[in-house]
């Protein structure tokens, strides 16, 4: 990332707060004077389906979509979703993955098993950083703050100052939840 340019994918389950995470990263990049494009999924998939947000930042960004094999980072809110989207990563790219497992309906009904170790093949191709973000979020005071802990873990890999991150977060979350969110963010930063 010598010339301040990155491609990032956020993968998760509809309702987990992936949209907010994308918005905050985009806002941080904008505050660092980068051009930004984010592509989001709204609508049906937000009802518990697989959702992906693309974030691209650099001096000038054209397409809102990251191409497979070109993501520097994959921020995964759920293990299976991390594995599913790992092909977006470039060789050696960084997968930051929440260790939570949310069972999809075909698994819930018993028709297909949840893979024993969905990240098995990803480990040989990418750097995989597994983080128990749910426990951190609960510790911070709100299980909904998983996205902030994951953001915290990602933040140390991006060349944005702490002020930029704090600024981007306070622009994007309701004032009364700011303390909890920052606590969860710091648990991700300092783990």
């Amino acid at each position: 990332m010598s010339e301040m340019r990155f491609n990032l994918i956020i993968a998760g389950v509809g309702g987990q707060g992936t949209l907010l995470a994308g918005k905050i990263i985009g806002q941080a990049a904008l505050m660092a004077s980068l051009d930004v494009k984010i592509s989001e999924v709204h609508g049906m998939a937000q009802r518990g389906g697989s959702v992906i947000t693309h974030v691209r930042a650099g001096q000038s960004v054209h397409a809102p979509l990251v191409s497979p094999g070109e993501a520097d980072f994959l921020l995964a809110f759920e293990v299976l979703e991390g594995a599913r989207s790992a092909y977006f990563l470039k060789p050696g790219g960084l997968l930051i993955v929440n260790t939570d497992r949310i069972l999809p309906m075909p698994v819930i009904t018993g028709s297909v098993p949840y893979p024993d170790d969905p990240l098995h093949s990803a480990r040989s191709l990418y750097q995989v950083d597994e983080i128990d973000a749910m426990s951190a979020a609960v510790l911070a005071g709100n299980p909904q703050a998983v996205n902030m802990t994951l953001l915290g873990a990602l933040s140390v890999k991006l060349p944005f100052s702490r002020d930029i991150w704090l600024g981007a977060i306070s622009l994007s979350v309701p004032g009364k939840t700011l303390d909890t969110n920052l606590k969860a963010f710091d648990l991700g930063v300092n783990r």
Binding site: G14, M44, S67, E81, R84, P113
Partner: peptide
């Protein structure tokens, strides 16, 4: 041409009633 194939076929996660 660009090789565009991901992937391993993971169990799908269709949207569900909440």
């Amino acid at each position: 041409p660009v090789n565009m194939t991901p992937t391993i076929d993971y169990v799908t996660r269709p949207p569900v009633l909440c």
